[in-house]
């Protein structure tokens, strides 16, 4: 059936060097990439969503024990880490703005700062984990949480089993978050190399925007983790 063959003009425009063959124009390619990233972030929300559900159910059942367990973590470290991540989000938008306005040193400097903030976050997280490890608050064979009073009820001790569920969720949630940070650091290393090589211009800097979306999203997850895990039923 030769008459059903599609006839038409062949679009032989001057191709942008970064335009992949199956896209018609750079705009379409950029929109597809950003749309794809947003959908991926949607899957990430549902991924963490299962953990948030588990957290909510057990927090409702074992509120006092969760309060006791939460109060054993240094809230100041969590707050400091929140601030660090917020600063890193600022440097991400500055890097993109630097690319948009052809300010090369601002872009590269901001990328480096972002990664430094990311490393600082992981460092503080490491200090926190080490403390929990020393206190035998890591779930497993050596876990112990005996004779810890429930906040507001000095005469009642927290049930170590229920506290263990809190710490299990704490380690899984913050651990997965930290894993996302490490992946983010990998992405930003690659972005830094691309930026250094001069691949990003005011016209083309899609990878920066996509990587930035991921980084901000990891920040948003932490914005929720901080009050949920560190600030249950706190008392001075």
């Amino acid at each position: 059936m030769p008459d059903s063959t599609v006839v038409g003009l062949h679009h032989e425009e001057e191709h942008h060097p970064e335009l992949l063959h199956h896209f018609a124009e750079p705009e379409q390619q950029r929109d597809a990439a950003s749309f794809g990233m947003w959908i991926f972030l949607g899957t990430e929300v549902m991924f963490f969503g299962g953990l948030f559900l588990a957290y909510l159910i057990y927090r409702r059942l074992y509120f006092g024990d969760f309060g006791a367990a939460s109060s054993s973590i240094k809230a100041g470290l969590g707050a400091a880490n929140t601030a660090v991540l917020i600063c890193s989000s600022l440097t991400v938008v500055l890097a993109i703005w630097g690319a948009q306005t052809a300010r090369r040193s601002l872009m590269i400097g901001s990328l480096i700062l972002t990664m430094l903030f990311g490393l600082t976050f992981l460092g503080i997280k490491g200090i926190e984990y080490k403390e929990k490890f020393d206190e035998h608050h890591v779930p497993g064979a050596s876990f112990s949480f005996d004779h810890v009073p429930i906040p507001g009820h000095p005469d009642q001790y927290a049930n170590p089993r229920h506290a263990e569920i809190f710490f299990a969720l704490y380690f899984i949630m913050t651990g997965l978050h930290a894993l996302h940070m490490i992946v983010g650091l990998g992405i930003f290393t690659w972005l830094l190399i691309m930026a250094w090589k001069g691949r990003f211009t005011p016209e083309y800097h899609t990878p920066l925007e996509i990587g930035g979306l991921y980084w901000h999203f990891v920040d948003i997850i932490w914005i929720y983790l901080f009050p949920l895990l560190y600030l249950i039923d706190r008392h001075r």
């Binding site: 929300v45 549902m46 299962g50 953990l51 089993r161 299990a168």
Partner: peptide
């Protein structure tokens, strides 16, 4: 897109629970 991540995290919890006996799904442990 929206359903599969939930089974993914569920399996993570099952694997973690089985390896470390965290108690998340074990009625004996609360």
């Amino acid at each position: 897109i929206l359903g599969t991540p939930v089974i993914a995290i569920t399996l993570v919890l099952v694997v973690a629970e089985r390896a470390l006996h965290l108690g998340i799904f074990d009625p004996k442990l609360g």
